[in-house]
Design a protein around this nucleic acid. Sequence first.
DNA 1: CACATGTTTCAGTATTTACTGAAAGTACAT
DNA 2: ATGTACTTTCAGTAAATACTGAAACATGTG
Lengths: 178, 178
Amino acid sequence: MTTSPGQTDQQSFHAVRDDFVRSWGALGTAWGINRTMAMIHALLMVSPEPLCTDEVMEALQISRGNANTNLRELVSWGLIHPEVKPGERKDYFVAEKDAWRIFCIVTRERKRRETEPALRVLNDCAARSEAFGTKEAETFHRQMAELAEFVELTNSIMERVARSERSQIVPRLLPLLK
Amino acid sequence: MTTSPGQTDQQSFHAVRDDFVRSWGALGTAWGINRTMAMIHALLMVSPEPLCTDEVMEALQISRGNANTNLRELVSWGLIHPEVKPGERKDYFVAEKDAWRIFCIVTRERKRRETEPALRVLNDCAARSEAFGTKEAETFHRQMAELAEFVELTNSIMERVARSERSQIVPRLLPLLK
DNA sequence: CACATGTTTCAGTATTTACTGAAAGTACAT
DNA sequence: ATGTACTTTCAGTAAATACTGAAACATGTG
């Protein structure tokens, strides 16, 4: 018995899609996002239909607790959102699929989790080292202040970019590429 | 017996510096950099003198193996570099202290570890889903291609920015802030 | 209310990641 | 070639992080 070409195609197409989900999970790790969260995101991005918790559990072979935690985390990021199907009680989840919007969300989240805490530390250390009068303290203070200023700048740029419409920002970035 | 003002100042200044090292370590975690690596980087950034492995071990209370691994990792990133003191055999380490250069190094490393692998995944999935002919595959292919194109753009921008002189790029970024 | 459906929590466990410290390795000096 | 100063490796262990699954909770419905 031979497999029909159609079936083969179907099978290998799904293999590609599964590979994407798996690879995105692995990438997640490098991005400081846990594997499961990244895989669920990938799964929903490429799913033509919204999926419920049980479908996600089934597709990724994960527990209910794990699915629930990561679905909620993705909702809190804004990368997916719950939808109710008429006549059904359970939530179905849909992913944001537009590259620019995903980029904005991730940028905003990174700003919140990475650059803002760094800025607080730097400003705090700069303030606390201001008035000692020793040369050592003065050097340290300058260093903190310089770093803070710089982080502040990147912070503002991230904020501004992530707030913009793609059509407004991308054309203004392109000249940077010379 | 009372503590002299000078001694108090000295003590609390060092407390600030130690806080910076600890906090930078904690931040490192959020940035996907291990705590020790971030702490060593912070320690060397605020150290007026180059430090050798034993001094780093002593200051952070860590083992030789740990110190060695993370010092080498920092050297490989380019965030610190070894120096030899005349007449001594051991390496002393100095941190890059300029905010812009640190930013460039981190950007380049993130590109290498985060966006480039993502691009490979996306291009690979796009290529492999090109020729199936089904509507499902076509949708998936478009999605991969769109994401790849976008990641490629951010990739190029990161590359370009990280290669530039601060004086060349910052003035061109400022207008983005409106 | 009793029941069904769906969601959340969390103690226990598994997996991953980081660290220790002693031993092996390297390389220069005498 | 032996000793000394320093660096690297790595097996074993510790710590951090993520996951499971069953029980508690919430929210309808008849």
